[in-house]
């Protein structure tokens, strides 16, 4: 994220160091402006509208639990150990929120973590994880597997 000089001084002179965000479950959360600035969607709104920070900014797609996790991740400078405590569902929720909030660093961090999790997993695990319905006919699936037969080795059991 690049800051121009004007933005830097604006940030320094900022009287309000926190922005209130309103999550999907109706919780109002005061968040440090440095963290909010990683959320491009909120940042651009604040900058364009020079908004009153006391009016809650609505995040209809992000739950308070997910926002908590995001704030902790950013505060901990994307700590692997902390993220390892997340459940699969939490990982997914943070990823979707990072994408929605347009948080580039967080998105890459979580996407890489999920990619690591999915490495060596079976096709069935993937379908389950992403909630994808297999739309291949058994013949089509057999055909596509046959073209890459050599890759179907060394998969985890689950």
């Amino acid at each position: 994220m690049q800051k121009t000089e004007g933005e830097e001084s604006k940030a320094e002179n900022e009287e309000v160091k926190q922005v209130t965000l309103m999550t999907s479950d109706g919780v109002k959360m005061k968040v440090e402006i440095s963290i909010v600035y990683e959320m491009e969607i909120v940042r651009s709104f604040i900058e364009v509208n020079d908004a009153d920070h006391s009016v809650p900014f609505p995040l209809p797609n992000v739950s308070s639990h997910t926002l908590d996790l995001i704030i902790e991740l950013v505060k901990n400078e994307y700590d692997d150990e902390f993220m390892k405590t997340f459940s699969h569902d939490e990982l997914k929720e943070v990823l979707v929120a990072a994408n929605y909030l347009n948080m580039k660093t967080l998105l890459d961090f979580i996407a890489t973590a999920i990619a690591n999790l999915l490495e060596k997993k079976s096709v069935e695990f993937i379908r389950n994880f992403f909630n994808i319905v297999n739309d291949f006919t058994p013949e089509e699936e057999a055909e596509i597997r046959k073209t890459n037969e050599w890759v179907f080795q060394d998969l985890d059991e689950d």
Partner: peptide
């Protein structure tokens, strides 16, 4: 290698 395997997840 993983991506080649995941080609058979779905048509999409």
């Amino acid at each position: 290698k993983n991506l080649l395997i995941f080609r058979s997840v779905s048509k999409t």
